[in-house]
Computed example of a mutant assay.
Amino acid sequence: MPDTDEHIRFDDLVAAIDRTLQAAGASPEAAGIMARNFAGCERDGALSHGVFRVPQIVETLNTGYLDGTAEPTAEAVSPTYIRVDAKSGFAQLAIERARPLALQALEQHGMAVIAIRDSHTTTALSGLTSSRLPMPASWRSPQSPPGFRTPHLWAPTARSTAQTHSPTRPRSPARGRW
């Protein structure tokens, strides 16, 4: 039986996805961020958020529903609350725009909240935040387990808020983690 298990170097995969997204209308910056994100998900075994999603993004760019050239704007609404208007672009690029303000808030206050509106994403957000907005050791709780490096992210979804937190439905471990 022939070997059908083909491999591609990480950098080559990033470059191929980057070219594909730029050809579909994404800006070089957005394409680069998304390509690293998709390839990272693929590398890390999160296949449902990796290369599998690239055709969907290309189709969404081609329809104009997603603006691949959008320039998100970030503003500090309070010392720890950053609001970002993604302008119908990628949520990952919006996070990048919020990064300087979030790092400042983390340094000064030990926490930051980033609220993004009018954005699109079909891949992981946690890789962007946990690896690029690290939590310094001095901000960790004394009860944090060994090796704890970053805060966990949780974003409510229609399913999580309506089904697992409904006052009329009991919480159940069968519905997943919450």
Rank of each mutant, 00 (worst) to 15 (best):
D11M: 14
P173T: 02
I82C: 03
R175Y: 11
A15S: 14
T122N: 12
S130L: 14
L125I: 13
S48K: 05
T60E: 14
R169L: 11
T164D: 06
P142M: 07
T150A: 15
L153Q: 09
A74Y: 04
L128S: 09
E29A: 10
L13H: 02
G127M: 10
S88Q: 14
P146I: 11
T168F: 08
H165R: 15
P146G: 08
S131V: 09
Q104K: 15
H152N: 10
T122C: 08
Q92I: 01
S78Q: 14
A115Y: 00
A98K: 07
G176N: 04
E107N: 11
P167K: 04
P28G: 08
R83F: 07
A26E: 02
E71L: 09
L13K: 00
F10K: 06
P55L: 07
Q143H: 13
R97A: 04
H109Y: 15
A155M: 13
T63E: 09
C41I: 04
E75I: 15
A24H: 06
V77C: 12
R159E: 15
A105R: 04
H165S: 13
A76F: 06
A74C: 10
L128Q: 08
R159H: 15
V54R: 04
T157K: 13
T20F: 00
L103H: 07
A94M: 03
A76Y: 05
T60F: 03
L66Y: 07
D12F: 01
Q22T: 06
R99C: 08
A74V: 10
T4E: 02
F10L: 14
L47N: 15
R149A: 15
A16Q: 14
G50D: 11
L128E: 11
A16L: 11
A74N: 04
A112N: 08
L13R: 01
G32S: 03
T164L: 12
G147Y: 05
W178N: 10
T123H: 02
S126M: 11
P170V: 08
T60P: 00
I116P: 04
T122Y: 11
F10G: 03
G40V: 02
I114W: 02
L47Y: 15
V113T: 15
T80Y: 12
D85R: 05
P100K: 10
H7R: 13
W154S: 12
A15H: 07
T122W: 05
P173K: 00
G45S: 06
E107G: 05
H152A: 07
I116M: 01
E59Q: 12
A91H: 05
G40M: 00
V14A: 02
A98Q: 06
A15Y: 03
W178G: 11
D18R: 01
